[in-house]
Design a protein around this nucleic acid. Structure first.
Length: 555
DNA sequence: CACGACGAAA
DNA sequence: AGGAGTTCGTCGTG
């Protein structure tokens, strides 16, 4: 069974794959692996990837088949492939496509082998969505349950390809401007055009719903705008916060022929419903108290939308999924920098928004120079003498906080500031006490939630102009779209193991730089404490994207 | 009416 | 599990 002795991958029958990072072919193997597997652990130089049904189906949806997966694994395997695993991959991947939803004489019909239809109909919850059984492997579906059916089937392990099509929606004439309002020439980048092409091909039934994955700074908004301009229909754009609503609006007016009167903001302060309407997830899910109805969900039916754009689809809240299940005949475009959610609703994204249509690796965009090249370093510092005793006698819960707020981090930050003097730098932390004390000893201004908007704005300005070279920021930095770009980020603490947060924070320094296009990300953690474990989890997403963290130990 | 402050929600 | 932040709607004030 030993076919080859020198590959970087050890492939195990439980669908996990170990990648030897020391191996000369490890980078090549990693690039192949992430097309259909996810990074789950990274102890030292062995990274553990796992293939799941969802990661395999997402691969299948972008056109990959089981034979290709198996072939690529075999190519890099150290000890060959366990037979069970091959069968597993085949079985799972072949499921993608076994069930199809199609429109047949104005009826929604589920097609599949009769035996398979028998099997799924054994589940009462599925049976509820079905109507009349047809002949030759077909079963009529209650169109109201198009979403629920897909959602439940994927939970049972059966992905459905939805070819039932979409309604066109209210027509709206829009096109992209070759010259923006601000006078710059504007053209889609190749990958942006490619993404839109995959999302919507005129005259075909395929596409029209799905997710496009692009790194921060790679122009997700532009892809959304281009999709809108391609479809030429009324569009609802849902996004994560108020600043982002404004940004979408500015971009739409700047880069398309849409007039101000055609673009509406639906937020707390204004409730405009226009041919293109931009709303926050928050307003959709707002209610006075639990048990009250969601009063703003009717926005979904307020107009005949031909397209709904879900910006930052990894943040989409559960009630919006429920609503989305009911509008499966409307085209849906999800945009995100990561398919990873911290709440495990990836399956719902797949079944209700749609499968992944396009993904661009961060490293690829970096190689093309559209984002800065980031050097990541994890710095381990020992526990400060003063609090060491406190730490050891503390409850498990407060330990993490003590480790995170370790005063021993301060001199390290000071060193880093000296090393990068003259480069715009952000110090990012999770605890207000820690931020205030560190900012005080380094004589650096701090931005937290309690600082009024206008004062934030003025600090942003000074930071942008270079008058203030270093800024300490709290969680406000995670979503503040208007925070200027920096070249160095120093993370002194973060929230538990949030992979998303780490990605967001690195996103802060990704904008292309003059000259060598370099940026630096430092994360400072206290050695020999649980903080190192959380740090490891946080780094997972970026490791998956091909970033490497250098480890630096301080005594 | 425009605003700022406040509590609730997720 | 927990800390920080945002947003919405309401209510009071000028």
């Amino acid at each position: 069974m030993l076919e080859r002795q020198d590959g970087p991958l050890i492939i195990q029958s439980d669908m996990t794959v170990l990648l030897d990072c020391e191996h000369p072919l490890s980078e090549e193997a990693r690039r192949m692996l992430i097309l259909f597997a996810e990074l789950v652990k990274r102890p030292g130089n062995w990274h553990t990837y796992k293939m799941s049904s969802l990661s395999l189906w997402n691969a299948a949806s972008t056109g990959m088949d089981a034979a290709t997966v198996i072939e690529s694994l075999r190519k890099y395997a150290r000890y060959g492939l366990p037979g069970v695993l091959e069968t597993n991959i085949r079985t799972l991947m072949e499921r993608y496509g076994e069930l199809r939803l199609e429109l047949s004489r104005h009826c929604l019909v589920l097609y599949g082998d009769d035996s398979l239809l028998d099997e799924i109909a054994g589940h009462p919850i599925i049976l509820e969505c079905l109507m009349e059984r047809g002949t030759g492997g077909s079963w009529e579906v209650n169109p109201e349950y198009r979403g629920q059916l897909k959602q439940e089937l994927i939970r049972l392990g059966f992905p459905v390809i939805d070819l039932a099509g979409y309604h066109t929606g209210e027509a709206l004439s829009v096109s992209l401007r070759p010259l923006t309002l601000s006078g710059r020439s504007f053209e889609l980048r190749d990958y942006q055009r490619q993404a839109v092409d995959l999302f919507y091909k005129e005259g075909t039934i395929q596409g029209g719903s799905g997710v496009i994955v692009l790194p921060c700074g790679a122009g997700k908004t532009i892809v959304g705008i281009a999709a809108l301009a391609r479809l030429n229909s009324a569009t609802l754009i849902l996004t994560s916060n108020a600043t982002s609503v404004q940004q979408w609006k500015e971009e739409l007016l700047d880069k398309t022929t849409l007039q101000p009167a055609e673009v509406g903001e639906y937020t707390g302060s204004s409730k405009e419903v226009r041919p293109v309407t931009i709303a926050t997830y928050q307003i959709l899910t707002h209610r006075k108290s639990k048990k009250d109805p969601f009063r703003h969900m009717r926005l979904f039916s307020e107009r005949d939308w031909g397209l709904i754009i879900y910006d930052e689809v990894h943040l989409l809240p559960a009630p919006v999924f429920r609503m989305t299940a009911d509008i499966q005949a409307t085209r849906r475009l999800g945009l995100t920098a990561t398919l990873v959610r911290e709440d495990g609703c990836e399956e719902d994204v797949f079944s209700l928004i749609g499968p992944k249509q396009f993904e661009l690796q961060w490293k690829t965009v970096e190689a093309e120079g559209h984002i800065a090249s980031v050097k990541c370093t994890e710095i381990r510092v020992p526990m400060d003498q003063g609090i060491s005793e406190l730490y050891h006698s503390a409850e498990k819960r407060s330990r993490l906080r003590l480790a995170a707020e370790n005063p021993g981090k301060v001199p390290v930050v000071r060193q880093l500031l000296e090393r990068h003097e003259g480069t715009p730098t952000l110090i990012i932390g999770q605890y207000l006490d820690q931020l205030h004390s560190i900012a005080e000893s380094l004589e650096v201004p701090v931005i937290t939630g309690e600082l009024p908007q206008n004062e934030r704005q003025s600090l942003y300005e000074q930071f942008k102009s270079g008058d203030v070279p270093v800024l300490a920021v709290s969680k406000v930095a995670n979503f503040a779209v208007d925070l200027p770009d920096a070249a160095v980020a120093i993370q002194i603490s973060g929230s538990y193991g949030s992979r998303q947060e780490e990605a967001q924070r690195i996103g802060r320094i990704l904008r292309p730089k003059e000259g060598r296009n370099e940026a630096w990300f430092y994360t400072i953690v206290t050695d020999d404490t649980s903080e190192t474990e959380y740090a490891a989890r946080r780094q997972m997403f970026l490791l998956e994207q091909g970033y490497q963290y250098e480890l630096e130990k301080h005594q």
